[in-house]
Computed example of a mutant assay.
Amino acid sequence: MKPAKPVESRSAASSTQTATLAEIAREAGVSAPTVSKVLNGRADVAPGTRTRVEELLRSYGYRRRRAEAARSPLIDVVFHELESAWAMEVIRGVENVARDEGLSVVLSESAGRLTPGRTWADQVAARRPHGVVLVLSGLDESQRALLTSRSIPFVVVDPAGDPGADVPSVGATNWHGGLSATRHLVELGHTRIGAISGPSRIMCSRARIDGYRAALETAGLSVDPELIRQGNFHHDMGYRAGLELLRLPDRPTAVFAGNDLQALGVYEAARELGLRIPEDLSVVGFDDLPLARWVGPPLTTVRQPLTEMAEAAAKLVLELGREERPSAGTRVELATSLVVRSSTAPPSA
């Protein structure tokens, strides 16, 4: 019988150790082929056994050697939600890079959860893609360890929370975007400016509303909690929150929406209440999706370079997979910019 190949490992104390598959199997109380199945993401292993073996592989810091890591010609992209034009811009960016590299793209959705389920991680490990791009999502510790042990790099786009210093990520200047949107309304003469944020658990959403607050405070305007509504980045929430704001006795003369879809919900609320945009109400969105140019009136919004962000993430994950030094670093932040169209004007008398 041929001796088992040694595996590369690191102890918690960062001292170099060496363990064979056979040694890991003995410690786990299983056979070496079972350890190999777990390592290769095979599904025919009992859950309890898989967990025990995975814990040992993590404790040894095991990583597949590059020569052994035969990769599929794929990039995995996982969204916390797929049903939006926003997602299409991200997909387009990843596709641009994948096409040039001769790779295909696999799409997954975590059904609104910010962390994909365990089944997803096992499927990715079995596919062995060139890398994983996570959008508004993240990984728990066991999922990170599983992908790391298979030498599958991952990059987070618009991380929901702080991804950690060791997690590569791509984002945009969300705080500055919220600041520039609100400053634009202040400079037009608006003093009662409503805001509809995104989910509070998502970091980019909090940054945009913080930029809104900063613009008001810089202009010497008070931040009125009555004028702020929490949204969820969907059109229907923009509509409902818009109705609440516009039905206030002293309604806002302008609204900054945390994304374009919510801004279009505000459009619908304004029409229902007989308010004209921009004569009676100014509206600013965030993202600059293609539809922002075609609504009536065309929407003033903050351009977030979604396609470029996705391209940067795809390039970064491929560089990490090739063990190259990333050309733009592992924490990338692209600039936002205000795009002024016809949905904003000075407040009427």
Rank of each mutant, 00 (worst) to 15 (best):
A12R: 14
S15G: 05
T18Y: 00
L21K: 02
E23P: 07
I24P: 06
A25V: 03
E27S: 08
K37G: 05
R42I: 00
D44L: 02
T49I: 15
R50A: 15
S59T: 14
Y60Q: 10
Y62C: 03
R64D: 01
I75L: 15
V77S: 09
E81D: 08
L82G: 00
E83I: 00
S84Y: 07
M88L: 11
E89I: 00
V90K: 02
E95R: 14
A98Q: 08
S104L: 14
V105E: 12
G112T: 10
R113G: 09
T119K: 15
D122W: 14
D122N: 12
A125R: 15
R128C: 10
G131C: 13
G131V: 11
V132G: 13
V132Q: 06
V133L: 04
V135A: 06
V135W: 08
S137M: 07
S137K: 02
S137N: 14
E141W: 03
E141Q: 09
S142V: 14
L146T: 12
D162K: 03
A165H: 09
D166L: 11
G171Y: 04
G171K: 03
N174F: 04
W175K: 03
W175E: 14
A181K: 06
R183T: 15
H184K: 05
L185C: 08
L185T: 11
L185P: 11
V186Q: 05
V186W: 07
E187R: 15
R192S: 11
G194E: 14
G194I: 04
A195L: 03
P199K: 12
P199C: 02
R201N: 03
M203Q: 15
R208L: 00
I209T: 13
A215F: 06
L216E: 07
A219H: 02
P225V: 01
L227A: 05
Q230H: 10
N232D: 15
H234K: 09
Y239K: 02
L246A: 10
D250P: 01
T253K: 10
G258R: 14
G258Y: 15
L261T: 14
A263H: 15
A270W: 04
A270S: 08
R271H: 12
P278Y: 01
V283C: 10
V283G: 06
P290V: 12
P290H: 12
L291K: 08
L291Q: 15
G296Y: 15
T300P: 06
Q304W: 03
E308R: 02
M309L: 10
E311R: 12
E311N: 02
A312R: 09
A314T: 05
E319N: 09
G321W: 13
R322C: 01
E324I: 00
P326V: 01
P326W: 00
A328S: 15
G329L: 06
T330M: 01
T336F: 05
S343C: 08
T344N: 13
T344Q: 14
A345C: 09
A345T: 05
